[in-house]
Design a protein around this nucleic acid. Structure first.
Lengths: 211, 211
DNA sequence: CGCGAAGCGTTCGATAGCGCACAGACGCCC
DNA sequence: GGGCGTCTGTGCGCTATCGAACGCTTCGCG
């Protein structure tokens, strides 16, 4: 299957697709990190998914739909394996194992979507920020990343100031250190304690279904 | 396929399944109305889906997963066609047309999940209540329904008082009338004007993909 | 017919997050 | 090495919603 893929490089804040656009490819990230955001009232909105090398970008194609409702934004530069929509559909029909694997991934994503909705509604910014940092680190496999408060704000669906406040708090507690967009995670267990339970739930779901 | 189904009746506030439970059946509502809610921090949480005769309850089984993360709660009594998990999987494998149809339905549900997350985050209670009433009426095909403020509050993820305030406002505007759980919709266009755009977006998605 | 429960309306103080505005601080580029 | 843009920190008034509490009305049931 890899034979039908081509490796592509993505730079940060690259947009793989806009909401409403036609999907021409699916992407299997190898080192790139992609955020999926739902638009709301015209603006970019709210992150509802985070995809690294554990997942795939372009899930609607797995369901036979070529239009995506989400925006896919490169959050951390890197590479992915890209496959055209047509060969992808072809593979899917001739490889039941692949199809079953993708079904499981879809389930995980649906579960995460539901979880996100609740988390966004009920949990405080600081807990959500901690969760986000943990999830990102899991996929980045590095304890350093480059993310501005501004970007975090748009992902979490809050004001930049809200992120700054939460980040100051986390930094004062010695859990992270940051400066001008460079964030370093210093204390993972500490972050887990601050993060909402959604983090653990998410991991558990993934482990059970795809682990 | 109907031959493999049996008709079952559900009473209001019946629970088809709890989060984490094993799915033994799928249900195709005929007259029943089912709310899907995601649990959060132990409590019941937040509605993330509404299923009437346009849809199906038990979508994880369509993806080969027998454990559901959601609670399915009968919101309005009625009947559904029920099929065992095993025959359902069997049908799915031998009827590509059914499989493709379900894929499309899954896409609609995923889109709704993402939309819900944003709506819950950004929109005011009154707009969300109006949207909820419209969506429910679409599936109930009646302009009268029996729903208490308390129940609405748990679906929308707000306090009962918040629902009361919004409901008072809608009633004062002449859009609805209610008393002790009996809600009547008086002015649909008026409600649409008050509801957030999510209502239209949802309908549009459904129409495009399954209409 | 009376009583209790269910459903609804209102109030009060508290709080998380908003919108806006402005100021410092660091780094890159000319 | 001076200037400018990016990133971060802080302050102020405002609003939607929260949490808790209390009272009123209506209905059903004994």
């Amino acid at each position: 299957m890899v034979a039908r893929c081509e490796e592509v490089e993505h730079v940060a804040s690259d947009v793989l697709f806009e909401p409403g656009s036609r999907l021409r490819h699916v992407h299997f990230p190898t080192t790139v990190l992609v955020s999926l955001a739902t638009p709301i009232d015209g603006s970019t909105g709210l992150e509802v998914g985070l995809v690294g090398d554990e997942g795939m970008v372009g899930t609607p194609l797995a369901l036979g739909i070529a239009i995506t409702p989400l925006q896919a934004l490169v959050q951390r530069a890197g590479a992915s394996l890209r496959m055209g929509a047509v060969p992808f559909r072809h593979e899917l029909q001739h490889r039941p194992a692949l199809s079953r694997l993708l079904d499981r991934y879809l389930f995980v994503r649906m579960t995460q979507l539901a979880q996100s909705a609740g988390c966004t509604r009920y949990h405080l910014v600081e807990a959500r920020l901690a969760r986000w940092l943990l999830m990102t680190q899991d996929r980045a496999r590095s304890n350093a990343m480059h993310i501005t408060h501004e970007f975090l704000a748009s992902m979490l669906g809050v004001r930049r100031v809200g992120v700054t406040k939460a980040a100051v708090s986390l930094q004062k507690a010695g859990l992270i250190r940051y400066s001008r967009g460079d964030i370093v995670i210093l204390d993972r267990p500490g972050l887990r304690a601050v993060a909402c339970a959604c983090y653990g739930t998410d991991r558990e779901t993934y482990r059970r279904v795809l682990g």
